[in-house]
Design a protein around this nucleic acid. Structure first.
Length: 480
DNA sequence: TTGGATGGGGAGCTGATTCA
DNA sequence: TGAATCAGCTCCCCATCCAA
């Protein structure tokens, strides 16, 4: 086996390149370098291959559409005097320009192509770009390019710009309203909708990281991130911090934690921002542990909570508020103690109910242990599984939280299949004993267990329950 | 009993089309 | 040119099946 170029013998253990494995672009580069065609079963030593690629991959950048495209692509960098690009990039540039149908001179190109997507406007509906929020959106999106005088966009891009404006308007309205379910907001980084997705507020170093990534677009003050982008931002920050020396000590007794925040120390009102309720109960430890675990927010020992928020399950809305991320020594010690206790106490084992804190039990199931036992005694004959308590517990947690099977499976250390099966068993048992009439799955029988309760009472109670059960309650309301 | 594959339903997003 | 509508696509969740 000899090298195609230097004819030296190549050991099979050495690095070499076979022409069979090369693409047509690489083959053409080699053929032009050698001055003759290359057959299929040739090989080349790594040294010769490197020399050819090093010498031949450079391509000049003449004036024209290619140069303009390259300048736009590498902006804000500029093409240096006598700058070169590799052959692969040159081929890529030519192909892209040909696909977009903008081979003509730049002045003509801007008039015949969409300013945004740069596709030809020859066979499609175009739209002017009047002054207004849509023009601002387009300007930000195509930066560093600029909208030329008389520039047009295709109608699809115009509708996209208009929808972006509508999105931004709705998000602003929701932010000013009483509730924000992220139905119309979008991730500040990837622009994906946040509806039914876990969201995070871009704050601290994460905010700086995202702001740098989306530059020149401006990061809004209350920008939200999807979970993926939030994780990605954290990973980027951690990668950057790996090169930083760790022997930098905090200048004082306080320390700033990037991933954690804490509530205020005051005990004069509920720790939930903007809460005007007058009750000032101590925050139960199980609640402090849950908020610390799920939201990375440390509720201080002196904090107080009102009756309304004491019964709350979903604390994701706390992401909307800016808490301090500067911790004192005592606060860190208290948070560590809370975290250690979490590992020791926070076990949700329905087979060993005595190990579960009464408050924690009611937090997850919505009922007391006595009520749980009463229900279990009634439906026990119909529970066709060995883990009857777990089956009923899982059903109640599912009804209260509305969490996905995957999350509940993680909570109970079971598989999704097991959760599905146990839920079905518990549901059938409850249907059998708490549904009037013949056993079927029609809505009328399914909800007849609630008929002994006044509708107003059900609705009032539903305010303290999770989204999943509220969904069931809304169905019940439709039937009344 | 578990884990993976698969398919269906709901919801939202996006580009194309139609109509006034 | 704006508004409404439609179809295709993606994402998420769940139920079911099947092999190990």
């Amino acid at each position: 086996m000899a090298c195609l170029q230097c004819t030296s013998v190549i050991d099979e253990n050495e690095q070499y390149y076979a022409t069979d494995d090369m693409g047509p672009e690489i083959i053409s580069v080699i053929e032009r370098y050698l001055g003759h065609l290359v057959d299929g079963n040739e090989v080349m030593c790594s040294q010769c291959f490197g020399i050819i690629m090093q010498e031949r991959r450079a391509h000049s950048i003449p004036e024209g559409a290619e140069r303009q495209y390259i300048a736009e692509t590498i902006a804000p960098r500029e093409i240096p005097e006598g700058g070169l690009i590799c052959f692969a990039c040159w081929v890529h540039t030519r192909r892209t320009i040909q696909q977009q149908g903008i081979i003509a001179a730049p002045a003509v190109m801007n008039m015949n192509a969409c300013v945004w997507c740069r596709r030809s406007l020859a066979q499609t509906r175009s739209h002017s770009i009047p002054e207004g929020p849509e023009r601002t959106i387009i300007t930000q999106t195509i930066y560093p390019r600029e909208i030329p005088p008389g520039g047009l966009v295709c109608y699809a891009c115009w509708v996209a710009a208009r929808r972006n404006v509508e999105h931004a308007t709705r998000v602003e309205d929701n932010r000013q309203g009483p509730s924000n379910l992220h139905q119309d907001s979008m991730c500040a980084w990837c622009r994906m909708s946040l509806h039914r997705r876990r969201t995070h507020v871009a704050s601290g170093p994460v905010r700086d990281e995202v702001a740098a990534r989306i530059y020149p677009n401006e990061l809004p003050e209350h920008a939200l991130l999807c979970s993926n982008c939030w994780t990605r931002a954290h990973e980027n920050i951690e990668m950057e911090q790996e090169v930083v020396q760790f022997d930098i000590q905090p200048p004082s007794a306080s320390i700033t934690l990037d991933g954690f925040t804490h509530t205020t120390q005051t005990s004069t009102h509920c720790f939930v921002p903007a809460c005007n309720n007058v009750e000032r109960n101590r925050v139960p430890e199980y609640l402090r542990r849950i908020i610390l675990k799920s939201e990375k927010i440390f509720v201080t020992e002196n904090a107080r909570v009102c009756n309304e928020h004491k019964c709350l399950y979903n604390w994701e809305f706390l992401d909307q508020h800016q808490f301090s991320n500067t911790f004192t020594k005592n606060e860190i010690e208290s948070m560590l103690k809370l975290s250690i206790q979490d590992n020791e106490i926070n076990q949700l084992d329905f087979n060993n109910m005595s190990s579960i804190d009464e408050g924690l039990f009611k937090f997850w199931t919505g009922i007391t242990k006595d009520n749980f036992i009463n229900i279990l005694n009634v439906i026990s004959p119909a529970l066709t599984c060995k883990n009857q308590k777990i089956a009923l517990g899982i059903y109640l947690v599912k009804a209260r939280t509305g969490d996905s099977h995957e999350r509940i499976a993680s909570l109970f250390h079971l598989t999704k299949s097991s959760i599905t099966r146990l839920l079905r068993v518990a549901k059938e048992a409850l249907l059998r004993y708490f549904s009037n009439g013949p056993r079927d799955t029609s809505k009328r029988n399914y909800y007849s267990a609630l008929r002994h309760i006044f509708k107003s009472k059900v609705i009032l109670r539903s305010r303290f329950l999770g989204i999943g059960f509220q969904r069931e309650i809304s169905k019940f309301e439709e039937m009344c």
